[in-house]
Design a protein around this nucleic acid. Structure first.
Lengths: 209, 209
DNA sequence: AGCAAAAGTATACAGTCGTCTACATGGGGT
DNA sequence: ACCCCATGTAGACGACTGTATACTTTTGCT
């Protein structure tokens, strides 16, 4: 993997550019790529054996980008005590600055290529695990067992990723998306907190309102 | 719209068949379609002006299918009091029986074609609204205001749709997906119930566990 | 400086694609 | 029995695709 240079990098970046303006990674053509990159079609073969391998490399490239983002996120989270609100804002801001990579991820997660799907899933699972462990270590939600934290993290990562698409494409809805995401996270954890309590207690609150 | 017959229907069904075996609606070719349907390529033009119109018609077709499903769902829900568990099971069972349509929906919701995306979104929003109104009418979650019910319904519909893909493709995970979906829904509503309460009450529970 | 490997280019081939025009069929309404 | 219109077929067009082979340029190492 390491670092890409020259024509190889040009091709990958061309792919990201094409995908953001409404195409899918799996549907990109070799010549289309080369044209966008300003290279001869055959240059493609100097760097990739075929289009499948190319797709995987692109995925690797964006995974690398995302990892640095997560690292930043972690660094930032340590300096803030009321993590939720600012973290959500930061995450969306990050997705906005990496619109191409985000679009690829969302498109291919349910896309037609099984290979790319698996690769993306394990990438997301890794992020979810990281998030969960962070929450557990810092005891952000005491009273919720570890398995549940993992489950909720898994859901949250995916939820944010999907909403990120709307966030990128619909600037007028950004505030609403951010707020709804906070709601989502808060409800999940508060709901989990309540889950362990006896049902008659819940009934009592319900009748009060 | 009405009802499709003959070659038109054959083409639409061919599309659904091709999509389930790992293709995307937007990436289907005219000749590929005709080949799969056992028709001459030019027959396509007798029924559709171009591939975009075809995509919309396919969407209309699956929307029709889905609507009958929702109607069934509603009928079934009225006869059951503890809606959640059985409803979730029923919904996934339905998606499993309409795997092709489900796959199309998930793929194109974040796919490259803006037209199809909008069409699918409004379809999902309609379902979410229906679900929310049903919940409100039947007072299934007293103590949660209408706007929140709508918000949660919106999230839930999408969540279920995405999980439905895994449900279809990974038979060994079906029980887990069903359970996690129930968790998801319960947490959302319970979390919403708690949201209106004073924060110090929440802190008290947390310290108790 | 010299040379070998890497990167990029040129040309060509067979296949597929979307679309056009022209022709064949077939059933329904008068 | 007639015609008509919807449906389906045939063949051809130019444009584009992935790939192979052969050639030129650039780069890095000794």
């Amino acid at each position: 993997m390491s670092v890409m240079t020259g024509g190889k990098l040009k091709l990958v970046q061309a792919a990201l550019r094409l995908i953001t303006e409404s195409r899918s990674l799996t549907s990109l053509g070799l010549r289309e790529l080369a044209r966008e990159a300003g290279l001869n079609p055959n240059t493609f073969y100097r760097h990739f054996r075929n289009l499948d391998e190319f797709g995987l490399q692109v995925l690797g490239y964006i995974a690398e980008e995302m990892k640095t983002g997560v690292r930043e996120l972690r660094r930032m989270a340590e300096s803030s005590d009321q993590a939720s609100r600012e973290t959500v804002a930061f995450v969306y801001h990050y997705f906005l600055n990496n619109a191409a990579a985000t679009t690829v991820a969302v498109r291919e997660l349910h896309g037609p290529s099984p290979v790319l799907r698996r690769a993306l899933e394990s990438q997301l699972d890794a992020s979810a695990r990281e998030m969960a462990e962070d929450i557990i270590e810092r005891r952000l939600v005491p009273g919720v067992d570890d398995a549940t934290v993992h489950e909720i993290s898994h859901m949250t990562i995916r939820y944010i990723l999907f909403r990120a698409m709307d966030y990128i494409e619909k600037p007028e809805q950004r505030d609403r998306i951010q707020i709804e995401t906070e709601h989502f996270i808060n409800r999940q954890f508060r709901g989990a907190l309540v889950e362990s309590l006896p049902p008659e207690t819940i009934a009592r609150w319900a009748s009060k309102n």
